[in-house]
């Protein structure tokens, strides 16, 4: 049996609409669940007050009740979920604030930790990162430059390739990912670099390795030869008796580093006979009787 709604509000049966509203406001101020978080009684009381005010606050409903056409309880409304039900949840509360204890959080990070753990980040969510793959020519990766990436939607993304980019390196383009949610910042585009192998260069860390074919004459007598490097040809002096496998270093001709320095290029000599048989060389060699050849082969295990 519901109690008398007039009693609930504490007004007489002939109270004016203004008096009823005033009474409701006075009680609602006191019992509103959001002004009394954690107080179950206040919620029940507020429900009761609200139900009564729904009835008596509306002159037509009040008249029907007074005439006995409807009873005080009415239909039970589905349980209203109050602000506090969400605000206390923490993790998904975009209105969460640590302002109430920000001043004693500085001494030790206990409170700030509690807060950062419990989200506030959900108010506006950062967009997701998007992953792309980009295949680069060997020299484009080493020398850097601009590349264009065609996205699945047909648009193009300009990617600045820093000099010295490695195979497998991931470039991050800030803000080029998915758009943010609720005014949040967009995510990033993460571009994984795949470097195609080069015909003659190989890369080890920041150094470049290259095999340099030299003629028999250059190998024996030494001399100046042109050597390819990632940044163009340079002239290098091959010393006398540079045998196949001997390695020469070109300092600072390797891969550029972020700090402005560069790795080195290592040039491995490979002695080459002339491509076509050379009659003059054959005649010359025929007159030459080295004594060491047999022993050398034994020494190298050949």
């Amino acid at each position: 049996m519901p109690t008398d709604p007039y009693q609930t509000l504490g007004v007489s049966k002939d109270a004016s609409q203004e008096a009823i509203q005033k009474a409701y406001r006075r009680l609602a101020k006191k019992f509103h669940p959001d002004l009394n978080p954690g107080n179950k009684q206040a919620e029940d009381k507020f429900k009761e007050i609200s139900a009564v005010y729904d009835l008596l606050g509306d002159p037509q409903k009040r008249a029907r009740f007074d005439r006995g056409e409807i009873d005080a309880s009415g239909a039970e409304r589905p349980r209203q979920r109050y602000y506090r039900d969400f605000a206390d949840a923490g993790a998904s509360n975009p209105y969460a604030t640590d302002a109430g204890f920000a001043d004693f959080g500085s001494a030790d990070d206990f409170f700030s930790e509690i807060f950062s753990r419990h989200g506030r980040g959900n108010l506006s969510m950062r967009g997701g990162d998007v992953h792309y793959n980009l295949e680069l020519d060997f020299l484009d990766a080493i020398n850097g430059g601009k590349q264009q990436l065609t996205l699945p939607d047909g648009s193009a993304l300009d990617v600045a390739i820093p000099p010295g980019t490695r195979d497998g390196q991931v470039l991050r383009l800030r803000g080029k990912g998915r758009p943010g949610i609720g005014g949040g910042p967009p995510g990033d585009a993460l571009i994984e670099i795949h470097v195609r192998p080069h015909r003659i260069f190989t890369r080890k860390s920041d150094d470049i390795h290259v095999e340099l074919p030299v003629s028999l004459r250059e190998a024996v007598l030494g001399g100046k030869v042109k050597v390819p490097t990632p940044s163009g040809e340079v002239t290098m002096t091959v010393p006398r008796w540079a045998n196949t496998g001997s390695t020469l270093r070109l300092k600072g001709r390797g891969v550029p580093r972020p700090d402005g320095s560069r790795g080195d290029e290592y040039v491995t000599v490979k002695v080459m006979l002339p491509e076509k048989p050379d009659a003059e060389l054959e005649r010359f060699i025929a007159q030459w009787h080295p004594v060491a050849a047999e022993r050398e082969r034994e020494a190298t295990g050949g």
């Binding site: 954690g38 602000y83 605000a87 209105y95 969460a96 640590d98 302002a99 109430g100 204890f101 509690i114």
Partner: peptide, 11 residues
């Protein structure tokens, strides 16, 4: 104030 209160409650 309500939001501060909830912040405090959570803490």
């Amino acid at each position: 104030l309500v939001d501060q209160l909830h912040g405090l409650r959570r803490a």
